[in-house]
Design a binder for these strands. Structure first.
Lengths: 213, 213
DNA sequence: TGGAGATTGGGGGTTTTACCTGTTGGAATT
DNA sequence: AATTCCAACAGGTAAAACCCCCAATCTCCA
């Protein structure tokens, strides 16, 4: 039996959610808290350690982000699922960085909720399709950042080195080229990418997905 | 009834996969092809237009990546699911850029397969947890890139401008500071982040998640 | 076989960065 | 009132980055 804790300031919401989850086979809600501080307090008492914590992001007082950070830092074996209205990119990224195991929007149906729970139990992770579709959009956006210029192998090689702390002299050594040649290539890259700077070049190349930092 | 086409050079694999899928309620395999060229030919004839194409990545001749690109360019309403042994980051990113709707590893079980199909039908997207966990690892890696130094508001502001094509003179104008002051802040940031370069600073800041490009 | 184009390199310049050692003035502390 | 702290600023210097024009090879290929 997988135990679940709910953290949400809207009591009626967590109560109804609890009733829904308790109807699912194999899942039970062990407790629910109305704010972040109380949730952490309950987790510290260790009385009823849940397998999964459903966490609302927007709450008065301690925010869901803070609670997520605390849990991911102090109770690594508890899986945190974020539950929120916000489709905000920033908080998604923030949560992912904290180590949250999934991200649900509050407008999901009961069916997707069960699917999410099962996936988390089986695989440890679940991201709602909206989120993955965000990743998708995010990646597709990169393709729209101007036309990717044609670059030759040697230029591409230089491009990768340019996205580095290395000064040109070092790059020249690594590529077995003279500094002048590196300079010529650099100039061509600047032209092709229509940038004024090594920094501008890096930004464009990253946005086009040509290099990964 | 959702129709599915299979593209895989291992005939025995696509045959058995077809039999498995045909056992799923609501899904049927309309055809299968042994290589990319034949798949595109069948898609062009438009005889049996599938809802979903299961695409093997590694194939002799035309690779799955090429086929994916073709479908996403020419038949946007067909959902492409990549199916592969490779957990290689590069091909994942490549496929995502082409607009693939999901990514499955060949070692998935029948159950996850059905889950994937149902999710694609319902939501349009499915990424195997391994992949999302890759995203996860990728994101978590960022947290391990050294301790995030404490930076004041004004420094943070400068940091954002530094991740830009702007030279210092322009940044100074934007921040209503003299160039000298910008320079002192810059020096402090270099020190705090332990970098030698504006570029090094950008790299570290991005990896720490302090700025987004 | 001559020319187009890719690759590699040089010389000589300006601009921008990066680093250094300072000073001033205001706010907070004690 | 004296001290500490810090944001803001100055000037100078050396290094790195950036920009232009040009040249020697080499391959390819029409």
């Amino acid at each position: 039996m997988t135990t679940i804790a709910l953290v949400d300031d809207h009591k009626i919401f967590s109560d109804s959610l609890a009733s829904l989850i308790n109807d699912f086979e194999g899942f039970t809600v062990c407790w629910s808290a109305q704010d972040g501080a109380k949730a952490i307090q309950l987790l510290q008492q260790n009385a009823q350690k849940p397998d999964i914590v459903f966490l609302d992001i927007v709450m008065p007082g301690m925010s869901g982000l803070d609670v997520a950070k605390w849990i991911c830092d102090n109770k690594k074996d508890i899986k945190v699922l974020a539950l929120t209205m916000e489709e905000d990119d920033n908080s998604v990224i923030q949560m992912l960085q904290y180590g949250v195991r999934g991200y649900l929007l509050k407008n999901i149906g009961a069916e997707e909720l069960r699917m999410a729970l099962e996936q988390v139990v089986k695989f440890g992770y679940y991201y709602t399709p909206i989120i993955t579709s965000n990743i998708h959009k995010h990646v597709e956006k990169k393709n729209q950042s101007g036309n990717v210029p044609e670059i030759k192998d040697r230029e591409k090689e230089l491009l990768n080195h340019l996205c580095t702390e290395m000064p040109y002299a070092e790059i020249a050594k690594k590529m077995f080229l003279s500094e002048s040649t590196v300079d010529t290539y650099r100039a061509r890259l600047f032209e092709k990418f229509e940038v004024k700077n090594r920094i501008g070049l890096i930004l464009k190349a990253v946005n086009m997905g040509l290099v990964k930092l």
